[in-house]
Computed example of a mutant assay.
Amino acid sequence: MTGTIGSGEPMQQNDRYVVQEDNSKSNDAVGTFMGWTMVAIAGIAAVAYAFQTVTGWYYATLNWFYAVWQYFAGFWPF
Score class of each variant (00 low, 15 high):
Phe78His: 03
Gly31Ile: 02
Gly6Val: 04
Ala67Asn: 07
Trp64Phe: 13
Tyr58Ala: 09
Ala48Pro: 01
Asn27Asp: 06
Ala48Tyr: 08
Gly35Ser: 08
Ala50Pro: 01
Ala60Arg: 10
Pro77His: 05
Tyr71Asn: 10
Phe72Val: 15
Tyr58Gln: 07
Ile44Cys: 09
Gly6His: 04
Gly43Phe: 03
Pro10Met: 12
Val18Glu: 10
Ala29Ile: 05
Phe51Leu: 15
Gly3Glu: 11
Phe65Asp: 04
Val30Gln: 05
Ala67Gln: 07
Val47Glu: 02
Asp15Ile: 06
Asp28Tyr: 03
Gly31Lys: 05
Val30Met: 08
Phe72Ala: 03
Asn63Arg: 14
Trp36Tyr: 12
Asn14Arg: 11
Gly35Asn: 13
Asn63Asp: 14
Ser26Gln: 11
Arg16Ser: 14
Trp69Ala: 13
Trp64Tyr: 14
Gly6Glu: 14
Val47Ile: 15
Lys25Trp: 00
Leu62Phe: 04
Trp69Arg: 08
Phe51Ser: 12
Thr61Pro: 01
Asp28Trp: 03
Trp69Gln: 10
Gln70Arg: 14
Gly56Ser: 14
Leu62Arg: 10
Val19Asp: 07
Glu21Gly: 07
Val68Trp: 01
Thr2Cys: 07
Phe65Ile: 11
Tyr58His: 10
Asn23His: 02
Phe33Pro: 00
Gly35Met: 05
Thr55Met: 15
Ile5Pro: 02
Asn27Trp: 01
Thr32Arg: 09
Val18Ser: 10
Gly3Met: 07
Met1Pro: 01
